[in-house]
Design a binder for these strands. Structure first.
Lengths: 250, 250
DNA sequence: CACTACGTTCTCACCGGACGAGAACGCTGC
DNA sequence: GCAGCGTTCTCGTCCGGTGAGAACGTAGTG
């Protein structure tokens, strides 16, 4: 029984090695329940293609240089353009808060830049390329509110609405209604729906035709937000305006 | 005729998309000379595994999040430990020159950290994960000189000794002899053998048993090196000593 | 509106190559 | 000498990849 398709197996092996950082053929064979000769075939093939390296001295396999190349290509393709990175960084400095830029990518919502520092660190799960939990993040809400109702429904159905904190919205009806007001107000707040004790805010970035194509956001400890709401919204709008202007021009 | 193995084809498709950044099925089919239905099968499989994404609106395929994950795993596995990164950074500051740390990885010689800045930029081809042209770089010479003669020969035969500048050593005999003196002097200089108008120097980093396991290096415009040779060697030895001490301890 | 070009998915009969049990070889450590 | 591991072969079975071709929807054009 050839378990699954050859390609599935190949990537399963690759990811198994990636997950353990370093693995022997036997370990992979045990973990994936694939017979040893088959594992060797796959490992050797992956090694030949430079996706793995074989450390002969230790009898172990590790990730090869092509993996890093793929990562670079991905990053290069997705990284927000320089003026947007700059606006995000300035927002970070102005509000003394980690700041983020996200956009659509096909059916996905992806973080394509973030600016933080030791004093104002990003929220741990968030990183370049992050593409989950749109229902529970401020930038996610902005971009969800820019979709048609059908797109949004199919997005939420495909990914679910996992409860991340007691305040996470986990019912579509609730979220749809919430996004109505987000859309009319032009700003999304997220109060401890993604991480405890953390509040985020986001505003849309629009292209030449006025369509929402991106979202600029900040995160802060909830304690530091009180009383600053309008200041935060003003700064977000200011820098989002710069982004939109760039998109109109380019 | 199934061209090559399925796995080869799969990675060829993946790399084709990576290279163009974004591609349609037809483009891939043309470039790789694989019939369209087969390309679609592969693209869909890769998409299902999140190594590609399908931008339905534009009918294009691009790299998916798993590619970035692989890159991260690779980086995490290979990145030099913090004390070594720190020593490399301080060397950079002390000598006002881009500095590098490289080590063995199986049969390979890999750059696992580098420290530079706008004023003292790294040599363009050099980046984290760089693993070529050991015969023409200072850190490469150090690590080649730490191999047995057989290891070195098979290394050089497998990768060749391409001429990168008029001064690149392209004959094994010459290099073997040169590495003799590198080994006894404990320092490797590289004068415009890798890039024109650029000089590099490197020293070994040793583990508890005295074996050479890594190399610390700097690069500078040749014009800035004259008369500073001994100062450079002293600084290299100083910081390499710190690295060695760390390796003896850990 | 017909017409073309493209993106995408099916169908289907063929057959190459993946499959895995098992054995074998070399090496290390006890 | 023996056990355990890493690694590679062998070999008969049969699964699943293969690609020409057709079909469907859609976007753009004249």
């Amino acid at each position: 029984m050839p378990g699954q398709s050859l390609i599935s197996r190949t990537f399963a092996v690759l990811e198994s090695v990636a997950a353990s950082g370093s693995a022997t053929a036997r370990e992979v064979s045990h973990q994936l329940e694939i017979p040893l000769p088959s594992v060797y075939r796959l490992l050797n093939e992956l090694t030949a293609h430079q996706y793995l390296v074989h450390l002969k001295a230790e009898g172990r396999f590790e990730l090869g240089p092509k993996c890093f190349d793929l990562g670079l290509s991905f990053r290069q393709r997705l990284l927000a353009p320089s003026p947007i990175r700059q606006a995000t960084t300035e927002l970070h400095r102005t509000l003394q808060a980690a700041s983020y830029f996200a956009m659509y990518r096909g059916a996905d919502i992806v973080l394509t830049y973030l600016s933080d520092c030791d004093k104002h660190p990003r929220l741990r799960p968030l990183r370049f390329g992050f593409h989950e939990a749109a229902h529970a993040t401020a930038f996610g809400k902005i971009l969800l509110s820019g979709m048609t109702r059908e797109q949004r429904s199919s997005y939420l159905e495909a990914r679910g609405m996992p409860m991340l904190t007691p305040y996470t919205m986990t019912r579509q009806e609730l979220l749809h209604a919430h996004l109505e007001t987000v859309s009319t107000r032009g700003v999304a707040w997220e109060h401890e729906e993604f991480l405890p004790r953390t509040t985020c805010a986001a505003v849309p970035v629009r292209n030449g035709t006025g369509m929402c194509v991106g979202s600029l956001a900040v995160s802060m400890p909830t304690a530091k937000v009180l009383g600053r709401e309008s200041q935060i919204e003003t700064a977000l709008r200011e820098y989002a305006g710069r982004c939109s202007r760039f998109l109109r021009a380019g």
